[in-house]
Design a binder for these strands. Structure first.
Length: 555
RNA sequence: UGGGGCGUCGCCAAGUGGUAAGGCUCUGGGUUUUGAUCUCAGCAUGCGUAGGUUCGAGUCCUACCGCCCCAGCCA
């Protein structure tokens, strides 16, 4: 809606057609995760699509937990999913829904199907059922239990519900066509026995509906007009429609499929992400290197940057892999515009200003953002001894080196221009201190002698600063497609994906950092206070680098 | 190999018969107290391939080729 020039995607076209033809008067979508893991960047796309469409077309969007398999689900996941959706900036319509809310209705409809002669209890076990199903090029054959009488099916199904059979002893199947070219239509199972308590319904049920049977009906009950899912469900659509047509449902939703979002140098499959967590490759689901929403949040990604990224990738049916640079662009774009600036020296090198009194302290005024006056100013103490980054000093530079060099000048950001006179080394020959002079009267102006500084570097007072640790991240995998073509993604885990640095010196204003906004440490990148630390409990300050600044020089 | 989905610049993606949008990446220039930002310029005689229809085809037709999905009582 904000970009009226942006071409419509295929789902928006369908919606506009439905709206203008009067087929529907208001759209209703839903985001239907199974609470069996943490949400990742791929889910963010589904969330933005479903909630975004509802916003754009003045409709509503439900949050529905597709909780039909208690063996894989946990309350921990439903809580994290709700938090992630809210954090991304979306609000679902009314209360949270659960497919389990409809178990009674779904059971009644199963009875209806049996009475219509369209469903039967099958005693085939899993292996037998596979044999009877046939394969991709050969038709299946009918189950020997397919022609049981309606009465017998009713009795058997009731026994299934009553808990008289063990897990897997039998199942309820729908009678369609065992020779159908679409495997999904070969008498799919719609109820299976699982003597497993459910996080929502407790011990009430020991039979649970399958996804295929429950999903469309859940949509129909909620009045969903456009049921959007990913491409792997395309071949389930005929089944989805079969149930809608053969059951007395209150509305007739339609399913549309789009391609899921993949990002290179990453994996997004709950199983694989879980493996990374379980094997200790990362510290948890919210490790800042994880492509999970919670990991990205802890890393410092903003909800807007994720929304913008997702929007930039489009909605199509093409299987593709988006380059991480597109994600990185979206974060930098948002952070550059909104992150207040600060200075932090990651690898301190002492600089003594020989022509500056030891007991003197000047407050330098620095804008919080170079392009946004509305963000105000802050002040920085300038003293005789300072810290600059080791990488910002060389005894002899070259034409391209725009930092501090012996005998040359450099601008200290928001302060004086200094000139280096001497490098002091330890016994190992390492530079441990630089003696320099300030050029008088150069705060906010160029030197009167006309000799300008070649570059600008950041600094912090050596006596007035805040000590902190910093975590720098690199991509979690060294392979551009870690799990493509049957590769073992664990083999390309990047051993240097996390670099922990301690002894960093930040400007005094960071002594009480905000935990809700990212900062730009000038010339170093964007940083976010690690949410895992507790400053009130005396934990040390730790900042996570969300992403570095764009760097066209280092390459 | 049965069925289904998809093939437009390195990546994402518009285009719906009238002569290839845009974004990311990359390259080069300008501005700059962040080697950032901003800004200017460049980057597909070509749309999986081969034929055909048409005054005209990425768009229509035919045949091939390639990639992805489906044989859970997972979602």
């Amino acid at each position: 809606m904000s970009d009226s020039n942006k071409p419509l995607n295929f789902i928006e076209k369908i919606i506009e057609d439905d709206l203008s033809s009067g087929k529907i008067t208001q759209i209703k979508t839903r985001f239907p995760p199974e609470p069996n893991g943490y949400l990742h960047i791929g889910h963010a796309k589904s969330i933005c699509l479903n909630f975004g469409l509802a916003q754009k077309y003045a409709g509503t969007c439900n949050l529905r937990f597709d909780d039909t398999n208690p063996e894989k689900e946990e309350m921990e996941y439903v809580d994290s999913i709700k938090e992630d959706v809210r954090w991304l900036g979306f609000q679902w319509e009314g209360d949270v829904h659960y497919t389990s809310d409809y178990f009674d209705q779904l059971y009644q409809w199963a009875l209806y199907l049996i009475k219509e002669g369209k469903a039967y209890v099958c005693d085939l076990n899993a292996e037998e059922m596979r044999e009877y199903r046939g394969n991709l090029k050969e038709p299946g054959k009918n189950s020997p239990y397919r022609d049981r009488s309606i009465e017998e099916n009713l009795t058997l199904f009731e026994k299934m519900r009553a808990g008289e059979f063990a897990d897997g002893a039998c199942s309820l199947r729908v009678k369609i066509d065992m020779a159908h070219p679409n495997m999904q239509m070969r008498d799919p199972v719609i109820y299976r026995i699982k003597h497993t308590p459910h996080h929502q319904t407790g011990d009430k049920w020991c039979i649970y509906p399958s996804y295929d049977y429950a999903h469309g009906q859940g949509d129909a009950i909620e009045g969903i007009t456009h049921s959007i899912c990913t491409l792997e469900f395309v071949e389930h659509r005929p089944l989805y429609e079969w149930f809608i047509e053969n059951l007395p449902v209150p509305s007739k939703p339609h399913q549309y499929e789009f391609s899921r979002l993949n990002v290179n140098y990453s994996v997004t499959s709950k199983r694989k992400l879980k493996q990374l967590v379980d094997e200790g490759v990362v510290s948890g689901w919210d490790d800042p290197r994880m492509p999970t929403i919670s990991g990205m949040r802890r890393r410092g990604y903003t909800p807007k940057s994720i929304r913008d990224f997702v929007d930039s990738t489009g909605v199509t049916k093409v299987d593709g892999v988006v380059d991480v640079s597109q994600l990185e662009f979206a974060v930098r774009e948002d952070l550059n515009e909104n992150a207040p600036r600060a200075m932090c020296v990651l690898d301190p090198l002492k600089v003594t200003v020989t022509n500056y009194p030891e007991d003197k302290l000047e407050e330098m005024t620095a804008p919080n953002h170079p392009q946004r006056e509305d963000m105000g100013n802050r002040s920085l103490p300038f003293t005789q001894t300072l810290f600059i980054d080791k990488a910002d000093f060389q005894e002899t530079g070259n034409k391209k080196y725009k930092r501090l060099v012996l005998g040359k000048r450099v601008r200290l950001r928001n302060a004086y221009i200094i000139e280096a006179d001497e490098a002091i080394k330890n016994d190992a020959g390492e530079i441990i201190e630089v003696k320099a002079r300030i050029i008088e009267n150069t705060v906010g102006k160029n030197p009167e002698d006309g000799i300008k500084a070649k570059g600008v570097i950041h600094w912090v007072s050596a006596t007035n600063n805040v000590d902190c640790d910093v975590n720098l991240y690199d991509r979690l995998f060294t392979d551009i497609a870690p799990d493509a073509g049957g590769k073992d993604f664990m083999e390309s885990v990047n051993p240097e994906s996390l670099q922990k640095i301690s002894g960093c010196k930040a400007e005094v204003n960071l002594a009480t950092p905000r935990s809700d906004i990212p900062y730009q440490f000038e010339r170093e990148g964007y940083f976010f206070l690690d949410s895992a630390i507790d400053l009130d409990a005396g934990d040390k300050l730790v900042f996570n680098r969300t992403i570095g600044l764009r760097d066209t020089w280092a390459k």
